[in-house]
């Protein structure tokens, strides 16, 4: 697997684009926040699966009312946004490509904002069909899990906009690069959480 994935870095810029070896991405303290957030969501996943265990039929029936296409599209949206932010991170560390860092960050934010648009369409579809958090236990969990994640997306988008200002400089110093890495990791965590929420709530029965 590693061999397959490593096929990318092979041209003259590979060295410049490669991340520094053995370093903590961003600030070490930020990882406490990230792992804390990921642990809270994991606890919510456990609570959701436990509740589903008591009423599998209701959860399966309610799940069939969800639009799986919206969920899949949003996964691809976040993955694509994440890739643009990874590219921006490579650019800001490379003297040759640093001028592209801001544009790539803004492009990542623009693609990421599509998640919010799709989610609003999805919620509108549910409310128009008379489905709210009070409809039943499944939809309470659906709105809580996806709503909490949506809040993270909005915070992540604000961070990306802040990072785009950081990326505007022609010669970023180590502090700016560390901030950029930290903010990027928050955005990737938003992606990572959705990678679990989508199958768990939309697909798994």
């Amino acid at each position: 697997m590693a061999d397959v994935i490593s096929l990318g870095l092979r041209d003259a810029d590979a060295h410049a684009l490669a991340p520094r070896s053995r370093h903590v991405p961003g600030e070490p303290g930020m990882w406490v926040l990230l792992f804390g957030d990921m642990s809270v969501f994991t606890a919510l996943f456990i609570v959701y699966l436990h509740a589903r265990g008591h009423n599998r039929e209701l959860f399966a029936q309610s799940q069939s009312a969800l639009n799986k296409n919206f969920g899949a599209i949003n996964t691809l949206v976040l993955l694509s946004s994440s890739l643009l932010i990874v590219m921006a991170g490579h650019a800001i560390r490379s003297a040759r490509w640093v001028h592209l860092a801001q544009r790539l960050t803004l492009a990542g934010a623009a693609v990421g904002a599509c998640f919010v648009v799709v989610k609003v369409l999805e919620y509108h579809e549910k409310v128009a069909a008379g489905i709210t958090p009070a409809t039943n236990e499944f939809f309470t969990y659906y709105f809580v899990l996806t709503g909490l994640h949506l809040a993270h997306v909005v915070i992540g988008l604000a961070i990306l906009l802040a990072l785009s200002r950081l990326a505007r400089t022609a010669q970023p110093n180590a502090t700016r690069i560390a901030f950029f890495e930290g903010g990027s990791c928050f955005w990737h965590m938003v992606d990572l959480l959705w990678i679990v929420i989508f199958p768990l709530v939309f697909l798994v029965r």
């Binding site: 490593s6 990318g8 870095l9 041209d11 003259a12 684009l17 990874v86 590219m87 490579h90």
Partner: peptide, 9 residues
């Protein structure tokens, strides 16, 4: 070079 990375794969 920015596109041809392990992240893209």
């Amino acid at each position: 070079a920015l596109v041809r990375t392990s992240a893209t794969a």
